Computed example of a mutant assay.
Amino acid sequence: MTAMDDHLRAVEAALFAAEEPMSADEIRDHVGAHVDVRGALTILVDHYAGRGVELVERGKRWHFQTAPDLAHILRRERDESRKLSRAAVETLAIIAYHEPVSRAEIEAIRGVQISKGTLDVLMEAGWVRPAGRREVPGRPLIYATTGAFLTHFGLASRRDLPGIDDLKAAGLLDPIDAALMQVGGEQLELESGVDED
């Protein structure tokens, strides 16, 4: 292997490892002042011409890029994971445990109004769907979970949703909620134990 081969490899490696396009001077800083960077760049441009990747100069800065005619092969859609807001998680849980349920019923259970965007996020995720209208005055829209909801959470059916005891055991209940549930249970016991004269 000749000195020129070593220089070519050094310039190629510097460009390949670079996070951003580099000027000839920046390349020289990496490979050493004794290397003919411009000569190496010319040879590498010819070497990569017509291949899957090409060495190109843009604004006096050099970098490797995918050959333009292959862009359609490499284009991929990717899923972006997004965290659900607390309101969305609570709304999803209410729908899952009480479906079919109307917006007013969701709000009554949560104790606060929900924004339309919350339901939209759940429908975009494919976890919630409109399930018709309730046969009451005003005919409100009712919501239910989807097969995609079951699939995402690894459930065979809604019967596989965890119960209160399961949630407590997993530490998923807010300690305040657990305390309120306990106080509520004790209150029920007191009320049921009161003797009436």
Rank of each mutant, 00 (worst) to 15 (best):
H47N: 05
A33L: 08
V56N: 02
V136G: 04
D29H: 06
L119N: 06
F64G: 00
L74D: 07
E90P: 02
K116A: 13
Y143G: 00
I95L: 07
R86A: 09
T66R: 14
A88C: 05
Y143Q: 03
S102V: 14
S115Y: 09
D36K: 10
P137T: 07
K83D: 13
L122V: 08
G39H: 04
E105T: 14
L119R: 09
K116N: 12
A49Y: 09
R75Q: 12
E107I: 10
D29F: 05
V37P: 01
M123W: 00
R129Y: 00
G111N: 11
D69F: 12
A24C: 06
D120N: 11
P130K: 15
G32Y: 06
K116S: 12
V37N: 04
D79S: 09
P137C: 01
L41E: 05
A104E: 12
A104P: 00
E90T: 00
R82E: 14
T91Q: 02
S85V: 06
G138K: 13
T91K: 01
R51C: 03
Q65D: 08
T42Q: 11
G126H: 02
E20K: 11
S85Y: 01
V121L: 13
R38Q: 12
R78Y: 11
A67T: 09
G126C: 04
W127V: 13
R129E: 14
G32V: 09
I27P: 02
S115V: 03
G126W: 00
D79M: 07
G132M: 09
G39L: 10
S23T: 14
R103K: 15
R28I: 03
L41D: 04
